[in-house]
């Protein structure tokens, strides 16, 4: 089956067309997976969350009215699933008496070795060192390119809170730029 445009693809998926839906997943799984990975710092958790996110996206597909890009809308849903995921994790960690930052990460390494990691790993480690609220803001600002106002609306906080969290995040990691 050949789908001429994304809109057609989405409409077909809305009607329950399986092929259309799987095509849609193929087109958008990468950005959503990497969003999950940056937020959770763990590929296994990221894949679990990816699946949950797409289930929610499929369920909510009828409410998508093409007033934003599909990617923006899908990331928003992934964001809400991510918060739920994090809260569940936090409860488990509290019960186990472990610190808040994600433990058991494949990229678990001390801060000092941050600079020896490359590319994606450096980002994921850097993000995992931030508290959840700051990580949220950094992701939405630098990777999803939202404005302060959009971030404030998404997180249901004031713009001043968003700015304060971002500045704290920027200060937290006094990253010394590697000389390339």
């Amino acid at each position: 089956m050949f789908f001429h445009s994304e809109k057609k693809l989405i409409n077909k998926a809305k009607q329950g067309n399986k092929k259309a839906w799987l095509k849609l997943i193929k087109d958008y799984e990468k950005p959503i997976y990497h969003y999950c990975l940056r937020m959770l710092g763990n590929p296994d958790d990221a894949v679990d969350l990816l699946q949950e996110a797409f289930i929610s996206i499929y369920k909510s597909l009828d409410s998508f009215r093409f007033d934003s890009s599909f990617k923006t809308w899908a990331i928003k849903i992934a964001h809400f699933r991510c918060i739920e995921f994090y809260r569940k994790q936090k409860i488990c960690l509290q019960l186990d008496d472990l610190p808040e930052t994600m433990s058991g990460s494949v990229y678990d390494c001390p801060e000092s070795s941050l600079f020896t990691q490359k590319g994606n790993e450096q980002v994921i480690i850097a993000m995992s060192l931030l508290p959840w609220e700051q990580r949220n803001v950094v992701e939405l600002k630098f990777f999803q390119h939202y404005t302060f106002e959009e971030i404030a609306k998404q997180l249901d906080v004031s713009t001043n809170t968003v700015k304060s969290r971002l500045y704290s995040a920027l200060n937290k990691l006094k990253i010394q730029l590697e000389v390339s």
Binding site: W21, E29, V47, Q51, F54
Partner: peptide
């Protein structure tokens, strides 16, 4: 990952 599980 199991994409089919997302469809119903």
């Amino acid at each position: 990952w199991d994409k089919e599980r997302t469809w119903f």
